[in-house]
């Protein structure tokens, strides 16, 4: 992993845990979460979902903002004179778009969350049963505590 002097951690809604890989790798780095107001509006997200996320975030050492995610994360990075942004991976297309915007101003490192199935080879995703034929071989492998 590349090493940075003054990274910030960008936390997004797929990894709301104090065991976030960015927080573990850089325990002293400032961390930020931005409620994506455009997404909340587009998807008509009700209050109870916002509250649930908020309660998760209150257990994390993270500054809470709302608004445009890329703009707010960039402003937070500038405020802390950051040289990099660390975040965790997500399959969401919106995540990819935000990362692309952030990369216009500084490096973004995407950390993996522990995989459920530790297998990098081909997976047939046509139907669950085909996926499971491969995944089953690894799905019961427990990591050492």
């Amino acid at each position: 992993m590349a090493s940075f002097e003054r990274p910030i951690i960008w936390v997004h809604a797929d990894c709301l845990t104090p065991t976030h890989p960015g927080l573990l790798a850089y325990p002293d780095a400032p961390a930020v979460f931005v409620f994506d107001e455009a997404l909340l509006a587009d998807w008509e997200i009700s209050l109870k979902r916002v509250l649930f996320m908020y309660e998760c975030l209150l257990e994390m050492p993270v500054t809470l903002l709302k608004g445009d995610v890329a703009a707010q994360v960039s402003a937070f990075a500038r405020q802390h004179q950051a040289d990099a942004i660390i975040t965790s991976d997500s399959p969401s297309p919106r995540f990819r778009e935000i990362v692309a915007k952030l990369r216009q101003s500084m490096p973004v490192t995407i950390l993996e969350v522990d995989p459920f199935v530790d297998y990098d080879g081909h997976m047939d995703l046509g139907r669950f049963s085909r996926y499971w034929r491969t995944a089953e071989k690894y799905a019961f492998d427990v990591r050492e505590p």
């Binding site: 709301l16 209050l47 916002v50």
Partner: peptide, 16 residues
């Protein structure tokens, strides 16, 4: 805007 859509708070608490 979220409260306008539906203002219920779930009894299920968030958090690790």
């Amino acid at each position: 805007a979220s409260a306008e859509i539906d203002s219920h708070a779930s009894p299920i608490p968030g958090g690790r």
